[in-house]
């Protein structure tokens, strides 16, 4: 079947006497077509996605299949880089660290964010100022706050270490960043501190959509505070909570800045996350193919998280 617009334009052209007027008319119809308008409006967005998301992703995929290194385009090596990464003990540790870091940071951010949101949902003096100031950790650039924390955890000059050591309470300084396990927990702590406001503010917005009538009705039926939270607040807040958790998991799993500044992946490579290790191999050492393969190991995990999110949102829309 012929496109009605094109067909229409043909008719118009045959009717119009001067050929010029016919061309203008056809252009007018083209520009006024809804399909064309939709396409034109979509193009910038699509272009941004293609240039800034799809192109780097495809390039990373291509790099991961080649032996490219800085200044040398390399050659196709198939999945050799992935196989090398899979057998790399530092990568294995980085993967475990990433899962550990993401899991615990998300658990703490959710628990503390929820607690904070519930507190901020009450009426008290200076409520607005406190709500606004709570966002500070989220507003300060991560690099700056990570530097401040690094100073606080400094092996020699940590505030806590300095006090305890010079007052004679401890003879060996606490190994905040000089012991791998301690350092990873320190990173979890800093990530929690930084990410908690995002949880708190989003959950607070969710809390404010819950009608107080529901709480009143539950209270009249004899529900105590815990019951009101568990049977009224939590179910109604669940959709918002899941969306926030999913976003947080994505951001935390691919975190780079915080670890890079706080520990640089040390001591003895024990705090590397996938992103920091991929950076060290790919960018700092110039092994771009290997670095790309390492970073692409994040993809299946993040894809799974996004898939879960989309599926959940679709279900919610159904409800």
């Amino acid at each position: 079947m012929k496109d009605p617009v094109v067909a229409g334009a043909g008719v118009a052209a045959s009717i119009a006497a001067p050929a010029e007027r016919g061309r203008v008319s056809r252009l007018t119809r083209w520009l006024e077509s809804e399909k064309l308008l939709a396409t034109v409006l979509l193009v910038p967005g699509m272009a941004i996605l293609l240039i800034f998301i799809a192109y780097p992703f495809v390039m990373a995929l291509w790099y991961s299949l080649t032996s490219i290194r800085v200044g040398d385009p390399g050659e196709f090596v198939g999945i050799a880089n992935f196989a090398k990464a899979w057998n790399d003990t530092v990568f294995q540790l980085a993967f475990k660290n990433t899962v550990f870091y993401t899991f615990w940071a998300t658990v703490f951010k959710l628990a503390l964010g929820m607690w904070l949101a519930l507190l901020l949902n009450r009426s008290f003096r200076f409520k607005r100022i406190i709500r606004a100031s709570m966002l500070l950790p989220f507003i300060i650039p991560t690099v700056l706050s990570a530097f401040a924390w690094r100073w606080m955890f400094d092996p020699t000059f940590s505030v806590m270490n300095w006090l305890l050591y010079h007052s004679g309470v401890i003879t060996d300084r606490l190994p905040f960043l000089s012991d791998g396990d301690w350092a990873l927990w320190c990173a979890v702590l800093v990530n929690t501190w930084r990410g908690m406001p995002f949880f708190a503010i989003t959950l607070l917005a969710g809390l404010q959509t819950i009608s107080p009538d529901l709480h009143e009705a539950a209270a009249l039926d004899g529900a105590n505070a815990w019951h009101r939270f568990w049977h009224v607040t939590w179910p109604l807040l669940l959709p918002v909570t899941l969306v926030v958790v999913v976003f947080s998991v994505i951001q935390t799993f691919s975190d780079f800045q915080l670890i890079y500044v706080l520990t640089g992946g040390g001591p003895a490579n024990s705090t590397h996350l996938i992103a920091t290790y991929a950076y060290q191999v790919g960018v700092a050492s110039g092994l771009l193919g290997e670095g790309a393969a390492l970073s692409l190991f994040m993809f299946p995990v993040l894809f799974g998280v996004v898939w879960f999110q989309l599926r959940f949102m679709k279900r919610m829309e159904g409800h």
Partner: peptide
């Protein structure tokens, strides 16, 4: 050694030395 050295970069020893640690 100061066992915190496991987490030092190139500037930590300068600060520790200058502060008498």
């Amino acid at each position: 050694h100061d066992e915190g050295g496991l987490a030092w970069d190139d500037s930590n020893n300068n600060r520790a030395f200058l502060s008498g640690d």
